[in-house]
Nucleic acid binder design. Structure first.
Lengths: 141, 141
DNA sequence: TGTCCTATTTGGAATAATTCCAATTCCAAG
DNA sequence: CTTGGAATTGGAATTATTCCAAATAGGACA
C-alpha cells in the first residue's frame, strides 16, 4: 500500500482511463511535483519549456486537464485569478495569503471533513467539497 | 437589534464607507434581494434594465463590487464560471448542483465554522473562509 | 519494416468575463 | 448658480481559456 513512484502512477492512471503516456504529460506532471507552489498554466508552461522547448501553451492546458481527470492533480481557483494546479492528493484546504498571493495547503483531519459534510440537509449529495481560507500567513515552517 | 430594512441598511452602509446612494446601486441591490438565485452580473443587468433602461453593464459590475465592499453581498465563484452574487448575510456554504447549475445556500452552524477554523496552524490568520460543495441536489424544499 | 489509424500536439484564432478609460452626467456644498 | 468630485456610460482593452484545423507521432498489425 506504498504510493507508487510518480511516473508509474501517472502511466497507470492514464492507462486506466484509456489515454496514452506522452513526454508532454510526463514533463508537466513531474514539474508539478518538483515545485509544489501551485503554479498557473502559464507558469508551468514557462518552467517546462527548458525541458521540452517546442511544447505549446495549449498542450500545457490539455495536460493539466488530463492530470485533473486522472485525479493526480487538483485545480484550485481563487476568485477570478488564473487556475492553479496542486499535486497534493491528501484531503486538504487551501489558504490564500492576500499580501503575497502565496497558497498553502492545510491538512484536513477526517473528523473535520466529516463534520463539514454533515451540514448538508437530506437530498444534497456532494461529490466534493472545497474549503478556502483567505487572510494573512506567517507560517512557522 | 432587528435587521434594518434593505434600503436603510444600504444607505447606511454606503455612508459608512463614504459613498453615495444612487438609483443604480439601489436597484441592483433590491434586484438581488428580490430573486435570490445567485445571478451573474449579466443576469442582474438583464433584470434591472426594465427598471433603469439606460443602465450599463459596467455600472452593474461597479454596483455589485460596491455592494461587496459594503459587505451586503457576497461574490461567489465556481471554477471558472462567471461570478455570482448572493445577498445572504448569514454564515453559509454553497452547494453547486452539477446537473442544473443551480446554487443553494447551506447554513453553517457556528460550531462547524469554529471547528473548521481550528484546522489552521499557528501563523495563519484567516479573514474569511469559503466552503463549496459540488454534487447533485434533490432538495426537499 | 511499412502502413494505417487514431490520439495527441501545435499555433493561432476565437470566446467570455471582466476591467479600464476617457468623456459625460449628476449632485451637493458653498 | 457654480464648481469639484463622485458616479455612470459606452466602448475598447485585457486576460485566461477554449476551440479548431492541420501536422505529428505512436502503436497495432500485416
Amino acid at each position: 500500500m506504498q504510493p507508487l513512484p510518480p511516473a508509474e502512477s501517472l502511466n497507470q492512471r492514464l492507462a486506466d482511463i484509456g489515454l496514452r503516456s506522452t513526454p508532454q504529460r510526463e514533463v508537466v506532471y513531474s514539474e508539478l511535483l518538483r515545485k509544489r507552489d501551485h503554479p498557473t498554466a502559464e507558469e508551468v508552461f514557462a518552467r517546462v519549456k527548458s525541458e521540452l522547448p517546442t511544447i505549446s501553451l495549449a498542450t500545457v492546458y490539455n495536460c493539466l486537464e488530463t492530470l485533473v481527470q486522472c485525479e493526480l492533480v487538483r485545480a484550485v481557483n481563487f476568485e477570478r485569478s488564473p487556475t492553479r494546479y496542486c499535486p497534493n492528493l491528501r484531503p486538504h484546504a487551501h489558504f490564500h495569503d492576500e499580501q503575497t498571493g502565496r497558497t498553502y495547503d492545510i491538512d484536513l483531519p477526517p473528523a473535520v471533513l466529516s463534520e463539514v459534510n454533515q451540514v448538508l440537509p437530506a437530498g444534497f449529495d456532494a461529490s466534493s467539497v472545497e474549503i478556502t481560507f483567505r487572510g494573512q500567513a506567517r507560517p512557522a515552517s
